Computed example of a mutant assay.
Amino acid sequence: MPRPLPRITPSLAERHEALWLRLTTLHKDITAIAAKKPDAPVGDTERSIAEGLISDCRPFLGSRHEKFPVAAQNFSGLAVQLGQVLAQLDDFENRHAAWDARNNCRCWRVEGESLPIARLRASVAIVPLTTANGEDLRAKLVRRRHNHERQIFENGFQKGLSARHGPPQAPHDTETVAEGSETYPRLRGSA
């Protein structure tokens, strides 16, 4: 008999999402500084914020009973520490979330109603596009594009035919009159 998948409370899921966003933002900022100045010392404010966030992440980390190390003294070390905590948060999410086909998104495994992972869920509503007459705008644009491409093809085909047959011939209602050694086309009835 397969073991049931672990479930969490909705409040723990919401707490995880809030911490994930805060930790990701701090990690991005520290990593940007570490790329320019890897051995620069970390200020007391940044270190206390990092230690507070790591402490808040404790329920989601694999080793809950160990003491957390003090935040690193330089930016490159702090970037590594925050990256490790972020990886453990991602691991927690992977163990406690799954794809929900009904909601068409990843959801936390909680008791009762599915709880979508808010930062991953698209909140854009698809609105049907119609013209003032009620005609489907997408279909109209597809037809217009198709007609444009067809016109380009027809123009190219006509240019290809004219290149194959040479320049257009003189109209049939003209006659050639010889004057000296040169011939000139003249309209009938004139002269």
Rank of each mutant, 00 (worst) to 15 (best):
E66H: 11
A118T: 08
I54F: 04
A125M: 10
I126M: 11
I152N: 09
F92E: 02
A98V: 08
F68C: 06
R58A: 09
V80P: 00
S55N: 06
S123L: 09
G83S: 11
A118Y: 02
E113M: 08
I117M: 05
G156L: 11
I152W: 02
R145I: 04
S55V: 00
H96L: 04
P69F: 07
I49F: 00
A87Y: 00
S55D: 06
I117H: 04
A125H: 13
L161S: 01
E51N: 08
E149A: 11
L82E: 02
E93P: 00
G160T: 12
A163Y: 05
L86S: 10
F153A: 14
V80R: 13
K140R: 12
F157E: 11
P69T: 12
N104R: 15
T130M: 05
I152R: 14
S76R: 15
V70E: 14
L161E: 07
S48A: 13
R109I: 00
G77T: 07
D56Y: 03
G52P: 00
R95N: 08
V85H: 02
S48I: 01
R145G: 08
T130I: 07
R95T: 06
P59W: 03
E66F: 09
G160D: 10
N147D: 14
L61P: 03
W99T: 05
N94L: 12
K140L: 15
R102G: 06
A87L: 07
G62E: 14
R64S: 04
I54Q: 15
R109C: 05
W99L: 09
N155C: 02
C105S: 15
P116E: 08
A139G: 09
A79G: 05
A72W: 01
E113R: 15
N155H: 10
F157H: 13
Q158W: 08
P69K: 14
R106D: 01
R121I: 01
A139K: 12
T131C: 01
R150K: 13
H148S: 13
T131G: 07
E135P: 00
F92D: 01
E93S: 11
K140F: 01
A79L: 04
G77Y: 03
A71T: 05
A139Q: 12
R64F: 02
E113H: 07
P116L: 07
R119P: 03
W99G: 03
Q84I: 04
L129H: 09
D91C: 01
N103L: 15
D136R: 04
P116H: 09
I49C: 01
V80S: 11
V124C: 06
D56V: 00
E51C: 00
E149D: 14
Q158R: 15
A72L: 01
L61A: 05
R106I: 02
L78A: 09
D91R: 10
V142S: 03
W108E: 10
S55H: 05
E51Y: 01
F157N: 08
D91H: 10
